[in-house]
Write a protein that binds this DNA or RNA. Structure first.
Lengths: 382, 382
DNA sequence: TCATTTTGATTTCATCCAGCAATCAAAGTC
DNA sequence: GACTTTGATTGCTGGATGAAATCAAAATGA
């Protein structure tokens, strides 16, 4: 049968429970639109499978029988999300509902070859998980490069070329003995910000990460836009500088230093460009930078009309003061502008997004409808 | 019941029939994954409702009972698609499966106010449909401006400001006594090319229209990307020209003429810029144009990594020779490039897309799952 | 203290619907 | 004219839902 009603309804109940956790059977019936009888039967089966448990009863002032609260068994399943940067790796262990339980920041073993890197990743994950390792169901990696739509072809990762080796992900899979997924780090950072950070409740959003390079992730209606070859969001490649230079050469850390050198200006670090008491030649450089940034932001805006653009990465930290100004100019040019905001999750945005992506895979394997992934997992109410 | 199996399966059968028309019950069972018994019952009901009919039997060389072919009753329902341009309006009558039955090109009554324009549209539609008018279920308009996500707020239509009047669509609805939808003309042109033109079988595609203005439509996985305020695809707003001028001022017809005048070059028409025997100063202008075009094309590529970019509009006609060159440069910059191709539907792309959009509304009202819209209606096999 | 009320969960029961398999229908083949 | 083959229909069974009755567990009030 194409349409297995039973399974469908069971998953609808589970989905609602993940959304409004914990909840009574009655609440689930109302939220899912199913009858109380069906919910009772679905819950019965889910409890038998060990997916749900009855938790403490809801204490209320009302009269009448007390509702029995249900919750998913969160600590039966864990995932590990890794943001494998060119210099540092952030690694995060989270449970089935997305609660982070362990986090760690390590130096990436940049000299390791693909096999050694895979081994290192697996042992780092094992280490982080400790005795929960046998309950870890998946790893997910954020990589500083383009990941093809198939989720295995990796290219364009000049800062960590080992990961481009064919079969790298397979090596990680073998070393960790777990399914492994991967995506571009900018995509995952956006996914993280959408579920737990600055882009909460913004199903259509862009995250621009500016540091050593320029990358962007685009999410439309809660889904990360992933091209076949991973060039989505490469706004840095726009040949929009003077003489057709690429924007990447203008707004990234190395680009700023190079431009300054060419102009005969001495900068201690890229951050000096943004000093409030800068000298006149630095200000001139700054004007060029601003123009390039505006092109990037305009391109991001017209590419999908996001509700919010999140800025992350080293350079973005220096831009906090300027977001309002950029927003005004965008509004002036386009008649409307997305909200510009700094990353909330900072260095762990990528690892957080990797956790979210890993959980989506787990949810998929459980049979939950993909259309619910936009708002799952839900950030725990504070 | 949240999940009405019966209705779901009936619509699955109808959807498959729309895809592989005409087909026997057995074919439908195979295509939909349902059992033959269920298909028989679903078809019985659909025939009773007048949605399907049995057509001539399939004559085959095989032995055995002949399959009875089924087809949707296409001429029971029509839609009208209109591309309301600033100077010309194209209007198209099509049946339920997207077969165009009447087409007409009229001068837009540019001096009419909103109410008069609405009346004019309604009578043009009535006129085109003739005695089929009572079977016309919907109108759909392509407008030279931004249409909000709600499908009624229209803005940014300087070339036909009447349509910005609040309630314009409501006036059309009243005048035609039919439901009316609207979208940006570039979006609809893309939709048309995706279903019947150059972007067939390309679920992710961009269409860039360059004429008096620059507009673009973006489709991802068969769905037109529609922003809340309609700035999606406004690549012409990128402030990427010299001194931050907008690209729109460089690649459109008026922009070309203006740049030429500023450079002291005399051009009879924008098309002269693309003459093969151009003089040296014209070639210099042409180089600037090419650079601006490359920025637009790069922006379009990194915005969603389309499989194909369709170029339409007056200026694009002059670019046919250059598409290969652009493609090569893009490939060189990005490592990968979409296929660049000229519009196949030409002036009627927008009206065709309006028909497709109208049919989607009709399909939706019939209960067909939106996820099937990506490949419905299907272009008739030649 | 105990009947009453209220609310949540479960169970009973009628109904609906899909799929399997048997049957019917309509052709060609030997 | 019996047999084979293929497509469509129908009888039957099992599974799943929802409405309503029932059970369960609490507070309330006489």
């Amino acid at each position: 049968m194409v349409n297995d009603t039973r399974q469908l309804n069971r998953m609808a109940v589970l989905t609602e429970l993940l959304r409004i956790r914990p909840a009574s059977r009655k609440q689930l019936a109302a939220a899912s639109g199913l009858s109380a009888a069906t919910v009772t039967r679905a819950v019965e089966q889910l409890i038998a499978e060990g997916v749900l448990v009855e938790t403490s009863e809801l204490v209320s002032e009302q009269r009448g029988r007390r509702a029995v609260l249900l919750d998913v068994v969160a600590d039966r399943t864990f995932v590990v999300g890794v943001d494998l940067g060119a210099s540092n790796a952030r690694i995060l262990l989270a449970d089935l509902v997305g609660t982070p339980v362990e986090r760690r920041e390590l130096a990436t073993p940049v000299r390791a070859d693909a096999a050694e890197l895979a081994e290192w990743l697996a042992s780092a994950a094992r280490d982080l998980a400790g005795d929960r390792w046998d309950r870890v169901e998946r790893l997910y990696l954020g990589l500083p490069g383009a990941v093809g739509r198939d989720g295995s072809t990796i290219s364009n990762a000049p800062n960590l070329p080992q990961v481009e080796a064919p079969g790298f992900l397979e090596l990680v899979r073998l070393a960790a003995d777990r399914p492994v997924g991967a995506d571009n780090d900018a995509n995952l950072a956006l996914l993280g910000e959408q579920h737990f950070g600055a882009a909460r409740a913004a199903p259509t959003a862009v995250m621009v990460t500016i540091g050593a390079g320029l990358g962007a992730g685009i999410a439309i209606d809660g889904r990360i836009l992933r091209g076949a070859r991973g060039v989505v969001g490469e706004f840095g490649q726009l040949p929009a500088g003077p003489l057709g230079t690429r924007l990447e050469l203008m707004v990234t850390g190395p680009g700023i230093m190079r431009l300054a050198a060419e102009a005969g200006v001495r900068l201690g670090s890229p951050a000096d460009l943004f000093a409030t008491d800068a000298s006149e030649p630095v200000r001139a450089l700054r004007a060029h930078f601003d123009q390039a940034m505006l092109i990037v932001l305009t391109a991001a805006t017209v590419s999908c009309e996001p509700e919010v653009i999140v800025l992350g990465g080293g350079i973005a930290k220096s831009l906090a003061r300027d977001l309002g100004r950029y927003e005004t100019v965008l509004e002036h040019h386009l008649g409307t502008a997305p909200r510009l905001t700094a990353s909330e999750l900072g260095d762990f945005a990528g690892a957080t997004g990797a956790v979210v992506a890993a959980l989506h895979e787990v949810y998929r394997s459980m049979g939950i409808d993909e259309r619910a992934f936009g708002d799952l997992p839900v950030a725990a109410a504070v």
